[in-house]
Design a protein around this nucleic acid. Structure first.
Lengths: 200, 200, 200, 200
DNA sequence: GATGAATGAGAGTTCATTCAT
DNA sequence: AATGAATGAACTCTCATTCAT
């Protein structure tokens, strides 16, 4: 039913990112996306099953691009620390350079109903897995504490970076998002690396 | 116009938390909330200006309760580390004990349009400010690095805790949320405290 | 959900009969019916679940009125012949006096999808049962052949009258529909009554 | 514009009968018919002017086949009674053997808008005329009453047979349709033949 | 203050039809 | 002649909001 490929498919995706970033998902009419993409209203339904499908597909496409790009970068990295730094930098830089994508993924995408979450959680899980692999690698390399829980560390890492992006999106972006890569990395890596136990 | 007080005001707030947690904000009809609260549809508009106003008010009420409760707890704490641990534990425990509130604040509240954000950002800022105060206090007490950027550290802290909650809400909650307080605190406090610089 | 009673319920039913008779069911918009009934579009959906529900309800109301009226007439009849004559006359007279009802029941009502047929078949069955009772009575009274199959006779009777009405509706109605009551009755009663077997 | 001939013309007609019988005219999309016929959507519009045209054409083709077949049968008949019996039997047998055709002509074809009726009334009139000829012949042969109105008798005859078919289509067809030919003929011929006047 | 029947604007979606290839 | 991607008009139904009682 939904074609999910072809020139117009991506034209609609791109139009959707732009329009939804500007007006928000619920305020965006399918007709608006269609006009921005330069196609007829009905054409949208050749490529997508329904409005929500645009949002999910959009996320899948963006996320696939994101993870693919990240994987490429990671190939050139040595140890886990370098990789972690790369992940954070890449995450912040990518969204800084694509503010529309940032807005859609940080804000609008969280507006979707239960069922859809399945559609977006899969590609997100790929990213999560990637982060966890790096942290596990760091443990193997003796860089991070052996008692570090990989999953918790991943949540903290992703949550930290994610919140930093959200704050930047919600603000009028008066600063460079990527400039926070260093401080955030610093904080996280110190939290994870071997060393003396903090006293409460 | 909106009364914002009285028995029915809170009845509607409570009903809204319950219903929105269960069905999501956009799928919830004002009539549903009214029925759950045991009032007529029109009555809702005596206490709230519009549907979104319920969501904002709800958040303000919950957040005020939350911060008030937290302040109380913090009075019994000694140094910043203790306070930070308290914040994290309180945050996780509160939402663990109020899963409806957790769902609404983690998921549904992020669905609101631009303008509303003002309404929710103020009470959230109170919380942010509180966290930042504790971190600043830690720096003064020599517990945390002097070059630690307080604002970034707050984002990382809040983002980490927030993500942990989101994961718990999105999962079928098969584990104790509050049990993550220790590991998360551990990670964050290590990241912030004085010590050797990590090598990349 | 659907209120199915009250002043506006019947106002909408009456409006629907009029508009659907004039333009046909599929060409009639809900908005047209609403306007004719003097209510808002949305009001229609307080009283009916969906467009098709109007059609079904309309038929049920008309049919109930019809059968009730017929039962009243039959009380004054003596034997089965008299009753059969009354049925045919009443059927033709009623639809002759309510051409809109005639059009809707003869033409438009046959346009509905499978499922709906249940809604219309029940009230129709009441009418069928009534005809069959009269025919059975005629057999008991010795007026009609003992080997007459009641069900077949009912189908022939109803089919004959129904076709006569349909022809009248489809034509520009240049003649009195009720004037056909005599000839049709004559034909049917001769067909049913005791007598010599026809040779082929 | 419409070609109205060729292999694909009939392929589309046959596909339409099948699909419309199964799903109903209004639920059937032109694309469905095209797929069933094994042609592209656009191809349908080479052979038919619009969707309704398929329905009309379909009826004309089926009706022409029907009347042609009937004429052939009637050649072997002697008097009017025999012919009438043949008509009824042929009508019931044909539709019994072609349930899809039965459904389309009994139910779906009655769903069409005003204008189309012209398209279907012509071939139907041929059939009507044929029935009337037989009844008139019966009068000339002295088999039927001289005061019998031919047109009314035709309506009663057709209506009776038609209703019998409709009942069979609407039911789950648990009996042989053609087995009703005898009883129906019996009833109708008794109604028409010379004999004593029934007392009311 | 409270009610709930009524409103009517609004948008998602379908699908008959067209036309460039 | 045949295709099937693209069109865009059309229409049902929802639901936040109002207001007479």
């Amino acid at each position: 039913m939904a074609r999910r490929t072809g020139e117009k498919y991506f034209a609609i995706i791109d139009a959707a990112v732009k329009i939804i970033a500007r007006h928000g998902y619920h305020r965006t009419r399918v007709a608006d996306i269609a006009r921005e993409a330069g196609v007829a209203d009905g054409t949208v339904y050749i490529y997508f099953t329904k409005k929500e499908d645009i949002l999910v597909s959009l996320f899948q496409v963006l996320m696939a691009r994101f993870v693919d790009g990240l994987r490429l970068k990671l190939e050139h990295c040595g140890n886990a620390n370098e990789k972690l730094k790369t992940i954070i930098t890449y995450h912040l830089t990518t969204l800084e350079n694509n503010p529309d994508q940032a807005r859609v993924t940080q804000i609008e995408l969280r507006q979707i109903d239960e069922e859809i979450n399945e559609g977006i959680s899969k590609p997100l899980l790929d990213y999560f897995k990637l982060i966890e692999e790096v942290i596990a690698e760091g443990k193997e390399q003796g860089l991070y504490r052996q008692d570090l829980d990989v999953r918790t560390a991943r949540k903290v890492t992703f949550g930290a970076v994610d919140e930093v992006v959200t704050c930047w999106v919600m603000s009028k972006k008066p600063y460079n998002l990527s400039s926070l890569a260093g401080p955030v990395f610093n904080l996280l890596v110190r939290g994870m690396q071997a060393g003396p136990v903090p006293q409460e």
